[in-house]
Simulated assay, not measured.
Amino acid sequence: MKAILTIAGSDCSGGAGIQADLKTITMHGLYGMSAITALTAQNTQGITSILEVPPDFLSKQLECIFQDILPHAVKIGMVANSTLIEVIAYYLDKYRPAHIVIDPVMSATTGSSLNSTSSKEALITQLFPLASLITPNLHELQQLSFNNPIHTKSQMLECAKELSLHTGKPILAKGGHLEESASDLLYLPNGTSYWFETEKINNPNTHGTGCTLSSAIACNLALGHTLPISIQYAKDYVTGAISDGLNLGYGNGPLNHCYKIQQV
């Protein structure tokens, strides 16, 4: 069985972060492992507190994982400070897993800010050079592409191109916040682009969508699919999880990661 490692924050309400990733990995029939970067007190209504993991403890988590069960793919989500990013970059550079998907979590679906200016710079200079794919949503893409406005697909294309040229990496710009559609764009450093067209689903419960998509992509890459196919399969999975219509909590509720399992 192939193993997938998620390096991210914990969501005590189960909708995003480590919890969403492990559910997604399990639903792809793979073995999930986790290294926790932060504990969060959050639910469908927002984040109330974040407790960052000490760098030496994150280092011990990663050392235990890589020395024993080398992951076939790694997904990186919320990393709250530059020191933790340095720790992650060290182990990724040392052990060189085949696939690294980075979801540059700078804000939650609930609107809460998760990253500092220093961690943004560390992401760009230390983690992005190791990535197989970077998956910003439109708000994150705007911050990473020098705050260019993004309201249309043409602006989305220009910003994804700019970030890809700057990093030399494939960029998956997630268009869930577009007004006219929920289309995503894969832009490759060689100038090739792919649009993944999806109509908006009438469901306000989308907590953890970005975490789920990036971990599903990592799973499909580990299974041997190409990058475009991995993204399409991951989008199909997320679309099904949103379309299921799960309704939990008083705010922006989670997806149903286990929608393919028949309830009894």
Rank of each mutant, 00 (worst) to 15 (best):
I231Q: 03
I231W: 02
A20Q: 06
K75E: 06
K94L: 14
A216L: 03
V238W: 01
T83H: 04
G77A: 07
G176Q: 03
S113E: 14
L123T: 09
H139S: 13
I36M: 12
L84T: 10
Q42P: 02
M1V: 10
H177F: 07
D93R: 04
I25C: 05
T167C: 14
I231F: 02
Y194K: 13
L185E: 06
G224Y: 01
A160Y: 00
H139F: 10
E180R: 05
A8G: 07
A131K: 01
A89Q: 10
M1F: 01
I69F: 02
L138W: 06
S243N: 11
S49D: 09
A108W: 00
Y233K: 14
I4W: 02
E52P: 00
L22G: 12
N220D: 06
P104H: 07
S49N: 08
G46N: 05
L39E: 12
A108S: 06
Y187F: 15
P228E: 05
K235V: 12
H207W: 14
I76Y: 00
T226Y: 00
G17M: 10
Y90A: 14
K60D: 15
Y194H: 15
D11Q: 09
I171L: 14
C211D: 11
D103K: 01
L138C: 12
T209R: 06
I217K: 00
A234M: 11
T6R: 01
N137M: 12
S164V: 04
P254A: 10
L70K: 08
N205V: 07
H72S: 12
G224P: 02
I4Q: 03
S119N: 13
Y90T: 15
V264R: 00
S107G: 05
I69W: 01
D236N: 14
P71N: 07
W195A: 13
K60Q: 14
P129T: 13
P55I: 06
A160N: 02
G32P: 00
K75A: 05
H28L: 09
G29Y: 02
G251E: 11
Q142F: 03
G9P: 01
L51H: 09
A160M: 03
Q19E: 15
D93G: 13
T135V: 08
D236L: 06
I134Y: 05
I85D: 10
H257M: 10
K174P: 09
R96K: 11
G249D: 03
W195V: 11
S230H: 06
V79M: 08
L30S: 12
S183R: 00
N203Y: 12
Q61V: 07
L123R: 05
I76F: 00
I171N: 12
F196R: 14
S82G: 08
T37C: 04
L141I: 13
W195Q: 10
L172C: 03
K75L: 05
